[in-house]
Design a protein around this nucleic acid. Structure first.
Lengths: 210, 210
DNA sequence: TAGATTGTTAATCGATTAACAATC
DNA sequence: TAGATTGTTAATCGATTAACAATC
């Protein structure tokens, strides 16, 4: 789709720009220079201009950037304006919290189905959606064509299930299992959320600060 | 503490090495070469050897690495063998899930206290710990000396509370609020877990793959 | 000993920063 | 117009990869 190859470092800064611009706008500001934004975000002005110019010239010499316009551009770059249908697999503590806690709509997704293998949970409502039996996954996907899946299941199940879901049209996985889900299918994306890894880096840094 | 300055890239790969080595050991393997590990992890052998040699020579020429020994070394490097006391603030959906779902002990921490501002929750048990009133935070910290805090509260509260907690001895924050907690105190560490940012990068990559 | 694989130095690559002409 | 600030090219810095002597 995109011809230019944008580095991962740049992509991972985009949501942060988006958040800061939202806060600035909420604070009543209408314009900002790369220098001022850089001071607020703890980056260099150069980096901000370089990052943004991967996607286009959104500023104006002598003026800076219009905050609302720039935020809107980044929203578009991230694809948040075209939400994709997502399903969530696994309604344990974490799955339930994710379903109830995350504002999917404002981050480019629409949660349309929730699944678990435990019969006892089936039918329960979570955030206005009924928990469905995992056995109905195939049928649901064929009918509703979700493109993303949120995996809140143990690593063994994650590996097996993910491979079954690719042929059903799931192209993006948001993976919460303690496992590096890596699927060698072209065009299939995995975003790993490793709580444990994050906590261990905090441990390292706590032990090695100062 | 550590004199050498280890780059963030290296630190963030350590937990992943740790996980892979654990899996290999569980699979009954006792030794591995950097080449084979590199193939399994999708890295280069060079990088693995460079990373490990930031901390010491854990391998043996002609042999490779002893898996158990190497995992043990990384455990020590990460500080997992010296758990730090942690408290959790905010027992909403997410906080509750974190408290119940995360294996703190095996990641360098020990959860010793849980707090919320909602009177109605106080006294409830979560993972063998009573939810305490946030008003008792000072006293609890003076008595039990936790060094890390898990913030599962809205961003406004996160900012205010974190600043109050630094003087109480909290030096590490695991931050789940949609906010870049940044505390300009020397030696205070913040590890941000931004669900929204992660989800937005997934959105970007889904829209721009192939 | 011969083969294998590390630890480490050197080369390459990519990302960040600096500089400045273009221009609002 | 003068001042400000971008977009963009060039310089720097750091991280990754390659190469190989050391050595088990």
């Amino acid at each position: 789709m995109n011809t230019k190859n944008i580095s991962d470092s740049v992509i991972r800064r985009l949501p942060r720009y988006y958040r800061f611009l939202g806060d600035l706008q909420a604070g009543g500001m209408t314009r900002i220079s790369s220098r001022e934004l850089s001071e607020r975000m703890g980056l260099t002005a150069s980096q901000i201009r370089q990052d943004l110019n991967c996607f286009g010239g959104f500023g104006q010499q002598g003026y800076g950037y219009n905050i609302q316009l720039l935020q809107h551009e980044i929203e578009h770059i991230l694809g948040i304006d075209k939400p994709q249908n997502a399903i969530l697999i696994g309604v344990g503590n974490l799955g339930r919290a994710i379903a109830q806690h995350i504002n999917f709509e404002s981050r480019g997704f629409s949660l349309i189905g929730i699944f678990d293998q435990r019969e006892s949970l089936v039918g329960q409502m979570v955030r206005n959606l009924p928990i469905r039996n995992i056995t109905s996954l195939d049928e649901f996907c064929r009918e509703n064509l979700p493109t993303a899946a949120i995996l809140c299941i143990p690593k063994e199940a994650a590996e097996v299930l993910a491979k079954q879901m690719v042929p059903l049209g799931i192209r993006g996985f948001w993976n919460f299992s303690h496992y590096d889900l890596s699927l060698n299918y072209p065009g299939v994306i995995v975003e790993n959320m490793h709580f444990g890894d994050s906590l261990m880096t905090l441990s390292y840094r706590l032990h090695n600060s100062e």
